[in-house]
């Protein structure tokens, strides 16, 4: 678990905030979600979110004050998948010595940070839920996803395909699983009871990985 937190600070903050806010509420449960592909292999970088269905008022999201970071390092985005709550700022620091550009044409948040050198340009506010595909118009192989959710209960699966969601108020939820290669949708309803520690195993069908791989330096390529 700590490994995931290191890689993805945003959910850490969200969880911490949720924990502090709802600590007074005794009726809280935990859900462990295991995402596997059709072959039974654990799926990394799957975004798991729980949207409350019975709450009279929307759950407060408490976006973090500091921007969530998606860095550009070694001509790659890092991390590949990031999940944030609506209203979160994201910054794109360039850690390389060459210039980069960041853009998205996704309807959730079309934007462009024009070519810039090392350092951080302005951060971008993501104020609508949805999927944001990120790219660099110079480096075709650079790609990343930002998932903006309208719930404080979200987590990204680690290498073992497990996402643990803690301190969930009892009640009915819709469990959404998303992955860059997910075929179709994966959602189900579930009820979280107090002091519950239910394990949800979710099997998803993944499409083949069609990411552009960066050509190794000096390989010369081949005739195609």
């Amino acid at each position: 678990m700590p490994r995931i937190f290191l890689h993805s600070p945003a959910p850490v903050l969200a969880c911490l905030l949720a924990f502090t806010c709802h600590t007074s509420r005794l009726a809280a449960g935990n859900v462990v979600v295991i995402v596997k592909d059709t072959k039974g292999q654990p799926v990394t970088d799957a975004v798991v979110s729980l949207i409350p269905l019975e709450a009279s008022a929307p759950a407060p999201l408490h976006p973090p004050v500091e921007p969530v970071v998606i860095s550009q390092h070694g001509e790659e985005f890092d991390p590949y998948v990031t999940v944030v709550a609506v209203g979160t700022h994201v910054s794109f620091p360039n850690l390389d010595s060459i210039r980069h550009q960041v853009y998205s044409l996704s309807k959730t948040k079309p934007f462009e940070i024009p070519l810039y050198g090392s350092g951080t340009e302005q951060s971008i506010l993501f104020d609508r839920p949805g999927i944001v595909a990120l790219g660099c118009n110079i480096h075709d192989w650079m790609s990343a996803y930002l998932v903006v959710v309208e719930t404080p209960h979200f987590m990204k699966t680690a290498g073992d395909g497990v996402a643990r969601l803690a301190e969930l108020p009892a009640g009915r939820y819709r469990l959404d699983v998303w992955h860059p290669r997910l075929a179709g949708e994966s959602r189900r309803d579930l009820v979280v009871a107090a002091a519950d520690a239910a394990t949800q195993t979710i099997s998803v069908t993944l499409k083949p990985d069609r990411r552009i791989r960066r050509a190794p330096d000096g390989a010369g390529g081949g005739y195609k």
């Binding site: 001509e75 210039r99 110079i138 480096h139 075709d140 192989w141 050509a215 010369g220 390529g221 005739y223």
Partner: peptide
């Protein structure tokens, strides 16, 4: 910035399928 240009050209090699 010729170094950025070089990395852009690298992107192009993949788009076009020309090794150089």
């Amino acid at each position: 910035d010729n170094r950025t240009l070089a990395s852009l050209l690298q992107s192009y090699t993949q788009r076009v399928g020309a090794p150089v």
